[in-house]
């Protein structure tokens, strides 16, 4: 199997298969889930049985059904945050590299300041002020991670701007639109795609952490992080309830990481060279 003109490695194939399965499970949740998302169907923290393959949660809802429905919330929040991060980061990063001079240095300085503090801490401060809601969560994560994307996009664009084919275009008198869309962007795609996967993982783990801290997705909705938060007390009773959503988080990040590793190894090869 090939992607971007390069053969997929076995780990990357495993990653893609896992990711397809997870997304599929989320999409098909209403049809494949044995119970409704909010139905109280059994005892609190019932052990796994034929009726409840993964047991029940802290309110007696079916764990498996909850897990399947939460896939949707989780992925929606994370993907939207990643898209916000990318739209902002790439646009401002390219612009900054292209304009250069004082504006570039001012934006870079601001980004450095934001990056001087861990994302989790800044996110906590913003949530303290604005309160917790899904749109606030998406925008906060998106804007904070945009700083990381900005750095990469700017570095990639700066690396390409000094390439001689870009200089030739500038010397021809081409406007910035041509230079960005036709000369820089096509060559930046592999690096940006790998970065997208990497950012996805980071945002995924951060949203999970925030939800785990009780500051992410709020009831009655739940993402996997919030499900861990709700079920922590089961641990001391020897129950495994919080493990299922936590494992789902780990499997998703591992899947994306496997694909990213492959993308990065492909990207390390010079562009345009065919095997």
């Amino acid at each position: 199997m090939k992607l971007f003109g390069s053969r997929l490695s076995t780990p990357a194939l495993i990653g893609i298969a896992l990711l397809v399965a997870i997304v599929g499970a989320g999409l098909l949740a209403p049809w494949i889930a044995p119970y409704g998302e909010t139905d109280l169907v059994g005892d609190v923290w019932a052990p796994p049985s034929l009726a409840f393959p993964l047991g029940t949660d802290n309110l007696g809802r079916d764990m498996l059904s909850r897990l399947l429905f939460a896939t949707r919330t989780t992925l929606t929040v994370v993907i939207l945050s990643t898209i916000v991060a990318f739209a902002l980061g790439v646009a401002i990063g390219f612009l900054s590299a292209l304009i250069g001079g004082l504006i570039d240095q001012l934006i870079s300085a601001l980004v450095n300041v934001i990056m001087a503090v861990p994302v989790l801490i800044v996110a906590l401060m913003v949530l303290a002020v604005l309160g917790t809601s899904v749109p606030v969560l998406i925008l906060t994560m998106g804007i904070l991670e945009a700083t990381r994307v900005y750095r990469l996009a700017r570095a990639v664009a700066n690396g390409l701007i000094v390439q001689e084919f870009v200089r030739i275009a500038a010397l021809r008198g081409e406007g910035w639109r041509w230079i960005v869309w036709r000369e820089i962007l096509p060559n930046a795609v592999p690096a940006l795609v790998a970065e997208f996967g990497l950012r996805f993982c980071f945002i995924f783990l951060f949203v999970a952490s925030l939800s785990f801290l009780g500051l992410g997705v709020q009831p009655p909705f739940a993402d996997w992080g919030a499900m861990v938060h709700d079920n922590t007390a089961a641990i001391n009773l020897g129950g495994l309830a919080p493990f299922y959503p936590a494992a789902a988080i780990a499997v998703t990040t591992i899947a994306v990481n496997l694909i990213v590793d492959w993308l990065l190894s492909v990207h390390a090869r010079p562009a345009g060279i065919k095997e």
């Binding site: 783990l205 952490s209 936590a246 494992a247 988080i249 780990a250 990040t253």
Partner: peptide
Amino acid sequence: ISMPEFLVGY
């Protein structure tokens, strides 16, 4: 590194 810290902890 793919696991959230709380999974490692639990």
